[in-house]
Simulated scan of single mutants.
Amino acid sequence: MAAPRTAFSQGRFYGAPTVERRLSGVRLAHLEATKRADHVDEHSHDDAHFVLATHGRYITTAVGPETEGPVLVYNPPGVVHRDRFVDGGGYFLAVSFEAADWRALADAGRGVAIDALRLTGPVARSAAVRLTRSLLARDAEPLSLESLSLELAAQALTPARDSEKRPTWLDLAETYLADTFDQPIGVADLARVAGVHPVHLARGYRRWMGAAPGDRLRARRLERAADLLMRSRDPIGEIALASGFCDQSHLNRQFIRAYGVTPGEFARLCGRRSDVSGVQDDGAGPA
């Protein structure tokens, strides 16, 4: 007879908290993974929660495009999954809402996603990264933590209707961007690969991605930079060039806009404290 699946109560995961805060309607924790991949079984959670993997390679079956950079996942209450870190030493942020509170948020909004989602949009990622930084600072105001938590929650509270499936040509264009982001790319190049008129492509990007093609190119470059900051020990200046940016200053400005932190701060959040502690971030802010 098969063993029953584990059903975790609110805020409980395969991890040991390094920092934990309980607020009105939400529970926040930064955790160190405690189970090897082969020891993580299928399981569920009583709560609705978000997980941001800040260190280590994280595998998820959640719906959504696979991208580089930090993995951010939303899981509804009761969904069965086996998301896990491939190797040991993983760290992650967990943002948990009790099922009743989550239903209340859904009733007040426009519905809620019923499937596990892989969130790759800039608003969701920025909120999750800033929430991680605030939580690890240990002295953040509850209002700030609650606001960022709700900003993140909103990304799963307005799902697209089934009749609004995004077109397949968009996947072709996105794949092309992912493969050639470090090269000069024009709208005509994307339109040719996707097989649509450039005007149609620009309108489609704005409707389905909420951004212009140029914004998505920049996002791809930032995803590569974030991925390298998480996994490599290369100097930030070299990471900037490898990600398609002109220099470290250029990366710094764009990274702050997208994630709300500098590349150096992000690297420290991801566990690279020893080799970036002496690195000075470029002081230039968003321009």
Rank of each mutant, 00 (worst) to 15 (best):
R27M: 14
R118E: 04
A48P: 00
E68S: 07
P4F: 03
S249R: 15
S144D: 14
R218Y: 07
M1R: 04
P142I: 09
L31W: 06
A106C: 10
Y14I: 05
V63L: 14
A128Q: 01
L152T: 00
V95C: 06
A29G: 06
R220P: 01
A53N: 04
G109D: 12
A62F: 04
R130G: 05
Y58E: 04
D139S: 15
R218L: 11
M209L: 13
P184E: 11
G278A: 14
L148Q: 01
R103C: 05
G69R: 00
V129H: 02
T175L: 12
G11K: 01
R5H: 13
F245H: 02
V80A: 15
A212L: 12
D281L: 06
M1S: 04
Q280H: 15
Q248C: 13
S232V: 00
S149L: 02
D281C: 08
N252Y: 08
M230R: 08
R272D: 01
G195A: 12
V261H: 04
A100C: 04
T262G: 10
P286R: 14
G111F: 03
V73G: 03
H250K: 08
V276S: 07
R253W: 05
Q280T: 15
F13Y: 14
D189P: 10
S149Y: 00
A140E: 04
V79T: 10
H45I: 04
S9H: 12
S134P: 01
A156P: 00
A16H: 11
L136H: 01
R161K: 10
L23Q: 09
H39D: 14
R22T: 15
G278H: 14
G186W: 09
L105K: 03
T120A: 11
G90F: 06
G237S: 14
T132L: 10
H45T: 04
A7I: 15
S9K: 11
L269E: 01
Y205I: 00
V112L: 13
D83E: 04
S232T: 03
K35W: 08
S249N: 11
R36H: 13
G111Q: 11
R125M: 06
R221P: 03
P77L: 06
F50K: 01
P65S: 13
T175H: 15
T120C: 09
T168F: 15
Q155M: 09
L222A: 11
Q254Y: 03
A202T: 10
G69V: 01
G210F: 08
S274I: 09
T67I: 08
R203N: 14
A116I: 06
P235S: 07
V51H: 02
A178W: 02
E146M: 03
S24V: 11
H43E: 08
A2P: 11
G204K: 06
Y176S: 12
R22D: 15
S44A: 14
D234W: 09
L217D: 05
L241A: 12
E32Q: 13
D47R: 04
L136T: 06
R192G: 12
G283M: 11
S249D: 14
P70G: 01
I256N: 02
R130W: 02
Y14E: 09
D101W: 00
A140M: 07
D189F: 11
M1I: 03
A225P: 10
V261I: 12
L251P: 00
F85L: 05
P263N: 09
P4W: 09
G210R: 05
G214Q: 06
R273A: 08
A37R: 06
V193C: 07
P77Q: 07
A287C: 13
V199Q: 12
